[in-house]
């Protein structure tokens, strides 16, 4: 146990030495508090972030609405908070789902090798070669009723949310897959895997107890960087109208009308984008910090 805490204590120590990484961690914590603050705020003020008031369009900031009202007369601050929850959640879920696809593909290719590896890597290379955004747009434009979903579901907010999670995951797993494959191949020939085989372990035992724990470190780093990319994808798709659909806010779709509004209410165009920028930047710096903290060169016990 001292060693487990030993490894993680050392890593934590190194992360703390990484100023940008620590700053991002703090920033992310603050942003998380910010997006979650809508719950108490709504409870106290009784304002509904989805309630439009056409008489309050573009109202300037006031005590009740510190950032003013948007083009439909909704409270901008609250919508930024709720939209942030959606954007961050999409970021996390799509990363996890895509990560699972990537890990499955990478482990299968790296562990079993041979023809399976060749096939999976051809698919991965093919995916990497594609221009992702056009593909995402087409996927985002797919009419869910045509693939068997009820019209009711297809037009619900939940469908918009899950659709974007799934399509991003379907497209953004290749980096993880390659990384996992390379790490798996490195570990596959280790003697402790042979020893496990001699002790009667099957392939699944070995993957679960030896491979996955030993490749977790690079995966964590890569997944962190993926979160940033996914949040960018979400914002783009929602912005173009193929992602999270209003009235559910997301930082991306809050910029939907921003292009026309840039002359009348420029700040409405500034806020959500700045928040996306900030979050993605922090996530990327955190990934950099983790990479530094998990660096195998400093991993060896002293």
């Amino acid at each position: 146990m001292s060693a487990a805490s030993g490894i993680w204590a050392r890593r934590w120590q190194r992360l703390r030495g990484h100023r940008a990484g620590m700053a991002s961690l703090v920033l992310l914590a603050l942003l998380l508090l910010f997006v979650l603050a809508d719950v108490p705020l709504e409870a106290i003020t009784g304002i509904d972030p989805n309630e439009a008031d056409l008489f309050a369009r573009f109202d300037p900031p006031s005590w009740a609405h510190p950032l003013g009202m948007d083009e439909a007369g909704r409270d901008v601050l609250l919508r930024l908070m709720v939209g942030g929850q959606i954007s961050l959640l999409v970021g996390l879920l799509a990363t996890l789902l895509g990560g699972m696809i990537g890990i499955a593909v990478g482990v299968a290719a790296g562990f079993w090798g041979g023809r399976l590896d060749a096939l999976l890597m051809r698919v991965t290379d093919g995916m990497i070669a594609l221009p992702l955004l056009p593909l995402l747009i087409v996927l985002g434009a797919v009419d869910l009723t045509k693939i068997g979903f009820s019209s009711e579901f297809a037009h619900s907010g939940a469908a918009g949310f899950w659709r974007i999670v799934v399509i991003i995951a379907l497209v953004d797993w290749t980096a993880i897959a390659r990384l996992v494959r390379a790490s798996t191949m490195q570990i596959r020939e280790r003697d402790y895997i042979r020893a496990a085989r001699a002790a009667g372990a099957g392939s699944w035992d070995i993957i679960a107890t030896h491979i996955l724990p030993n490749i977790a470190t690079p995966i964590i780093v890569a997944l962190t960087l993926t979160v940033g990319r996914v949040i960018l994808f979400e914002s783009v798709l929602s912005f173009l109208g193929f992602g999270v659909v209003p009235p559910t806010p997301s930082w991306g779709n809050m910029l939907n009308n921003a292009q026309e509004l840039v002359t009348t209410a420029p700040l409405l165009a500034v806020y959500p984008g700045a928040l996306i920028f900030l979050v993605v930047m922090a996530v990327n710096f955190l990934g950099d910090g983790l990479q530094h903290a998990f660096d195998p060169r400093s991993e060896q016990p002293e």
Partner: peptide, 8 residues
């Protein structure tokens, strides 16, 4: 540069 949403 990596983190900025291009459209924004």
């Amino acid at each position: 540069g990596i983190s900025v949403p291009v459209f924004w």
